[in-house]
């Protein structure tokens, strides 16, 4: 927590230039991840904090079949949007089940996508072994106390969880991230935005240093689709998910015409369950189908003793949300 410079640029291009040129600079938006890591846990050292909260990247606009959400839109603002309520109800549910009202008034959509893992081994610099913090140092969590950790996409090098609720329906929806860098703008589907830990758990996404998320484009669900988000946790509120699932279904005559399914609380990244969707598409909306989809979605988990229970819990979470959304009794 060395002293840092605080700057508040006036425009997006200026902010991007400022951070791109300085390897010790970082954007500051809602602050709910960054300030925690810099000031409290001492995990991140910065030379310069570039406050982007007053840049014109806030607000929601509706197109024909997408919603364009400025990256600095807060979680509460997005949850209050009438289109979200009407056409993306599971996005609203995921938003309101995340964090607390205070944090949702601060945390931005762009920041939510970029939130860092809650793994306490990552967040405590006195723990030597953390490949995410210090590449090549090992992983203390894998032999330590793991409960709020990933079982999909995880490996011995890193089991850190991506704890976002919002991103679960967003990956299910094929949301697209718009990015601005010094070299120009580009767009990346959220499903391709994150990088699995592999050998470099410190690399979490495709952003280059200095690139800024400016907007998230969210396709709307068909008018006749039904959706839901289920979050399972020990505490009734204000806790990250042990497991969660976002599902959107288009059901015609008892058959699933189109399914979207994604998982939270289990992945090193927000987890789109494509194979499960393929199984669901065209299948009858019955419990047998749901269970089969759950089995597929949780194939080949990587568990440690503290996370082993999450495999079955995640399957049941999937079954339950599919039941709820489809109206099928358990």
């Amino acid at each position: 927590m060395n002293a840092f410079e605080y700057v508040r640029p006036d425009d997006v291009a200026g902010a991007v230039t400022m951070v791109s040129r300085d390897p010790h600079a970082s954007y500051l938006a809602g602050g709910t991840t960054l300030l925690d890591l810099v000031l409290k846990d001492g995990v991140v050292e910065l030379g310069r904090v570039v406050d982007i909260t007053r840049l014109p990247l806030r607000g929601i606009s509706r197109g024909d079949d997408t919603l364009r959400v400025g990256a600095l839109t807060t979680m509460e603002e997005l949850a209050a949007d009438p289109t979200v309520t009407e056409r993306l109800p599971f996005v609203r549910e995921a938003l309101l089940l995340g964090a607390s009202p205070q944090l949702r008034n601060m945390a931005t959509v762009g920041g939510n996508i970029l939130q860092r893992t809650r793994c306490r081994y990552f967040r405590d610099p006195t723990v030597a072994a953390c490949n995410k913090r210090a590449p090549g140092s090992g992983c203390a969590a894998v032999t330590g106390v793991a409960r709020m950790h990933a079982i999909l996409g995880a490996r011995a090098a890193c089991i850190a969880l991506h704890a976002s609720d919002l991103c679960v329906p967003l990956v299910a929806l094929d949301a697209v991230v718009h990015i601005q860098g010094v070299g120009g703008k580009r767009s990346v589907p959220l499903t391709e935005f994150y990088v699995l830990p592999g050998d470099r758990p410190d690399i979490e996404n495709v952003l280059q240093h200095g690139e800024l998320i400016t907007e998230v484009e969210v396709p709307l669900l068909p008018v006749n689709a039904r959706s839901g988000y289920l979050k399972v946790r020990d505490r009734a509120s204000y806790e990250f998910a042990l497991t969660s699932a976002a599902a959107a279904l288009l059901i015609e005559d008892g058959t699933i015409a189109r399914a979207r399914l994604a998982l939270g609380g289990v992945g090193t990244i927000p987890r789109r369950a494509r194979e499960a969707e393929e199984l669901l598409n065209g299948a009858p909306a019955v419990n047998q189908t749901f269970r089969a989809a759950a089995e597929v979605a949780l194939r080949d988990p990587f568990t440690v003793s503290g996370t082993a229970f999450k495999v079955e819990l995640a399957k049941r979470t999937i079954v339950r949300i599919l039941q709820t959304v489809s109206g099928v009794q358990s």
Partner: peptide, 25 residues
């Protein structure tokens, strides 16, 4: 309160990790 079996460090020494009841409980 969970002690790391190897190091004796408390593995969940924050209010985000050591859960006390909230109003909704």
């Amino acid at each position: 309160t969970i002690f790391d079996p190897g190091s004796g460090r408390i593995a969940n020494a924050t209010f985000g990790d050591y859960l006390i009841p909230v109003n909704a409980d």
